[in-house]
Amino acid sequence: HNGKLCKLKGIAPLQLGKCNITGWLLGNPECDSLLPARSWSYIVETPNSENGACYPGDLIDYEELREQLSSVSSLERFEIFPKESSWPNHTFNGVTVSCSHRGKSSFYRNLLWLTKKGDSYPKLTNSYVNNKGKEVLVLWGVHHPSSSDEQQSLYSNGNAYVSVASSNYNRRFTPEIAARPKVRDQHGRMNYYWTLLEPGDTIIFEATGNLIAPWYAFALSRGFESGIITSNASMHECNTKCQTPQGAINSNLPFQNIHPVTIGECPKYVRSTKLRMVTGLRNIPSIQYRGLFGAIAGFIEGGWTGMIDGWYGYHHQNEQGSGYAADQKSTQNAINGITNKVNSVIEKMNTQFTAVGKEFNNLEKRMENLNKKVDDGFLDIWTYNAELLVLLENERTLDFHDLNVKNLYEKVKSQLKNNAKEIGNGCFEFYHKCDNECMESVRNGTYDYPKYSEESKLNREKIDGVKLESMGVYQILAIYSTVASSLVLLVSLGAISFWMCSNGSLQCRICI
């Protein structure tokens, strides 16, 4: 991952900044910058967002509201009850120091605090018919004063009620008058409520006091790749198909172990950190130390980045220098085999997901714990399936590479015959000098055995068991695999060879 928040398929997220979902939807004055928000790819909250409900109280069923919003990608904020005409018999300019803005008392931008007009609070009834052709999110509140005197001074009615009804919602609220500790300079409380109004449905408000009335509502448009994440990451000019709280993932790998919460087309989250597919040879310690064997393909974004291909070729060293050249036929066979294998694994496992966190309130801790156990169970199954699949494929890959290298080895052996000696570690020792032209003939299969047989015969008789390297004779190393990324691999195959001279070296080696 890149540690950044990015656009998702070209669409920017909605960053709530210092506000949370509650503050944004109710219209906390400190969240005025969010009022123009219309569309987004996903919503970003920060872990310690401080601006929620400015007048103390709870947004009821907040967790369910977050779940609903996680599939919303755009909205239209509109005046559901026009301020100047909807409440002619009531005062609608209630403000509070708890919702101060720029040093002055204020109130929510989407709600109206209705109080008595003169000395009376006549029963009010108002309704709205949803003609938007889509779901409408309606929010309101109920004020709970701290004393009967406060109730009387604001609403005149000691036994007030609030009723809200639609086809799918029907509740009646009565204020709970009680002494409470002071929070944000208030002994009173406000509880906030919401409902989704279906197209064509009607919502009716009736009250004799204590109503925090809707002013603006939201017509919602769903987008199934949307979601809500909690993150401290910063926004950058970048684009992605998959976003996590820790950063964007741009990967076609089937798995990731970065974060379980994802938005967009994302690899499946697994616990494993070692889900690797081999593309090189079986481990040979001396070669492995030099980083030549054991190439791997990573299938977990965050564990290993991208696929690494092994390729086969020849390396030689003689009086004229040293050089490398790919054996294109065996390399292409290996590439085709690995590509098919990788595609097979991805096809089997690479279903892209959006995974969002589930919200539970403080009273639902047991449910949250149960949900976590269920999620953990599914996660263990996914991890096991992934590891088992790759384990089985790896064994076949190792066998496949062994065969490829063996074929190259036999190709060289059949040409050199007794003009060189096998020394048991995949290397041959020449009994004759071999210049670049000679080396090329070994690589392309045109090695002239009779041409060098007499010199080889004489050297075999002279050496008589002495280690060949100390006599200045020449080696050919018969097994060799270097490691390159897919891009470098293609470039390498396009070149005939490249040279690395070893000044004054008397050794001649050709490596497979």
Rank of each mutant, 00 (worst) to 15 (best):
C511Y: 09
L292G: 00
S441K: 13
F293T: 04
C434E: 13
G306N: 04
N436Y: 08
M349S: 02
M439Y: 02
I335N: 04
N425G: 03
N336S: 14
G310N: 01
Q332W: 06
T446N: 06
G494T: 15
Y452E: 08
N394F: 02
S251K: 09
D375L: 01
G303W: 02
L403P: 01
G310F: 10
A326W: 01
G424N: 06
C427V: 12
H401M: 11
P267I: 00
V412F: 09
G465S: 12
E237Y: 02
V390G: 01
T273Q: 12
M471R: 07
L398H: 04
I496N: 07
V345I: 12
D402S: 13
L370Y: 06
R460Q: 13
C242Q: 11
E461L: 09
N250V: 13
E319A: 14
R271W: 04
G264A: 03
L477V: 07
M235Y: 15
L489K: 05
K341Y: 00
S481K: 10
A495L: 04
D448Y: 11
G321W: 07
S234P: 14
V390I: 15
S497R: 00
G280H: 05
K372H: 04
S481F: 07
I287V: 14
L493I: 03
N340Y: 02
N419Q: 02
T383R: 12
R443M: 12
K329H: 10
V488P: 08
G337M: 07
T351S: 12
Y409E: 07
G377N: 10
T279M: 07
H432L: 11
K433I: 15
Q352Y: 00
F293D: 01
K411L: 04
G504H: 12
K365T: 09
K329P: 09
K421H: 12
S456H: 00
N407T: 15
K268M: 04
L253R: 15
K348P: 04
G424V: 04
G291A: 14
M367D: 14
Y474L: 12
Y269H: 12
A355Y: 11
I510G: 00
D327K: 10
S414K: 15
Q328W: 12
F293I: 11
Y431C: 08
E469D: 10
F378G: 11
M235F: 14
S251L: 08
E469V: 12
K467A: 08
K413V: 04
R509H: 11
E395N: 03
A326G: 04
N404E: 04
L458C: 05
Q243M: 10
V356E: 04
T273W: 05
T482V: 14
Q320F: 14
Y324L: 06
D309A: 07
H259N: 14
L379M: 08
Q288K: 02
G298E: 10
N340H: 13
N250G: 06
S272E: 00
L275A: 00
S414L: 10
V491T: 15
E410Y: 14
L506K: 09
G424H: 10
Q256G: 02
Q352V: 10
G247V: 04
N336L: 11
I300S: 05
C427I: 01
N371F: 09
Q415F: 02
E422Y: 03
T331N: 14
V442G: 14
W311K: 08
G504V: 08
Q328A: 13
V342A: 03
W304D: 12
A325E: 00
A297D: 00
I463V: 15
E393Y: 08
H236K: 08
N318K: 11
A325C: 13
L489G: 12
V483M: 08
R276G: 07
T339M: 02
F299E: 05
Q332M: 07
L398D: 01
Y447S: 04
I284V: 02
F498S: 06
S344I: 00
L458F: 07
D309H: 06
Y452G: 04
D309I: 05
Y447L: 13
H259E: 02
T383G: 10
H432K: 12
G247R: 04
N444I: 15
G294Q: 03
D464R: 14
N250L: 11
M277F: 12
E437I: 13
K241T: 09
Y431R: 15
C434G: 08
T244G: 04
E368V: 04
Y312D: 04
S251H: 07
D464V: 08
G303D: 14
Q288M: 02
E393R: 07
R366W: 11
G264K: 12
I296H: 04
R443D: 02
C434R: 13
N371A: 07
E440K: 05
F378S: 01
M235P: 07
N361Y: 07
T240Q: 00
V345M: 09
D309V: 02
G294T: 15
W311E: 06
C501L: 13
D380I: 06
G313Y: 15
L468P: 03
Y431Q: 04
I463A: 01
P267Y: 07
I263C: 09
S441N: 15
V356N: 06
S456V: 11
Y289H: 13
A420F: 15
I463Q: 07
K406H: 11
H432W: 03
A334W: 07
N350V: 08
K365W: 06
K268G: 05
L292Q: 01
N318M: 07
S505C: 03
R396A: 01
I287C: 06
K451Q: 09
E387A: 09
G426I: 14
L403G: 09
S286T: 11
G337A: 12
F299A: 10
W499S: 00
T354Q: 11
W382I: 12
G310Y: 11
V345H: 04
S502D: 13
E301P: 02
T351E: 00
S322V: 11
S344T: 15
C238P: 03
N361Q: 10
G357T: 11
C266W: 11
I476C: 13
K467G: 02
L408E: 08
L493G: 05
I346F: 05
F353H: 05
L398I: 07
G298Y: 05
F498C: 02
H259V: 04
Y314M: 15
L281H: 02
G494P: 02
W499K: 07
E410L: 02
T397L: 07
